[in-house]
Design a protein around this nucleic acid. Structure first.
Lengths: 144, 144
DNA sequence: CGTACTGCCGACCAATTATATAGACATAAT
DNA sequence: ATTATGTCTATATAATTGGTCGGCAGTACG
């Protein structure tokens, strides 16, 4: 399951993506529009900022805006920041690998073998889909 | 992430699959071979039994054996029993659907749209891969 | 019969993780 | 100065996960 943290992160980035080339948007406004608990969102945006995706400005008239083109922010990157591994088993993770406690020889583990396939299928989608794509999908869905 | 419960379930079914057409195998033996906490495995096997995948026999000489052909036990079924939904967001789940608290109109939600694709990709693999396939993969991996 | 073996079942528990919330502080605009 | 914002650390609460305990119930076998 995707954590709420990740879902909120994506929603915030989508809103900021739609808001591009406008003045920075306040946490409280994003929180209100997307119905996200404000203090929780605060932490999430801070993580995204520290990861280089967001620009922030303090003080009156401050807020957040994207630090990159929405086309260059892929879901996989966001998820790795907020949720960690993409794979469903640690032994099949590329970026967060660690051995399963109980496994004897993982090189011949059939479960791992299957879940590497699952990981690759998931990864293909998530690393090809950007915030811009999510926005585009929404526009298509609304029109239809 | 796959829960340990699910991983243990698959491991147990694989062992029982290899053990087919032999007398029933005891929980304690499966637990020992696969390094799974016995009491925890007990619960898991019970779930699988109640779902119709296993046959059990009490008393001396009792134990567990498969109630179906390993070819007919798909990973997706196991996972739905032990972990629940396959989809990463509840609003994209086929068997465990429920609305996201904060979403306004989910029909035009871009996130949901993407994660329906992820679900389908995952589902394709998990509903095509059986316990027999997992065993076959292990055999291939060992030989190479 | 009784005894040992084995699964069945309900309750319980500890640790971790997820989801927040609080409050003091730093900085910017006016 | 004052107000509006983001930053940061700590804490609270709830849910989930992973695991354990003890006793009951059915079966085999002497």
């Amino acid at each position: 399951m995707l954590s709420k943290k990740t879902k909120y992160a994506i929603k915030a980035l989508v809103v900021l993506g739609k808001n591009a080339d406008k003045p920075p948007m306040q946490i409280s406004k994003i929180a209100e529009e997307e119905r996200i608990p404000k203090k929780f969102l605060e932490q999430i945006l801070l993580d995204l900022r520290n990861a280089g995706f967001l620009y922030s400005k303090k003080g009156a008239g401050g807020g957040y805006s994207l630090n990159k083109d929405p086309k260059d922010i892929y879901l996989v990157s966001i998820m790795r920041i907020t949720d960690g591994p993409i794979a469903m088993v640690p032994c099949a993770s590329l970026n967060f690998y660690h051995k399963c406690d109980e496994c004897r020889q993982e090189t011949s583990c059939g479960i791992r073998d299957v879940f590497i396939d699952v990981r690759d299928a998931t990864l293909k989608i998530l690393s090809e889909t950007s915030i811009a794509d999510v926005i585009a999908r929404e526009n298509t869905l609304i029109k239809v």
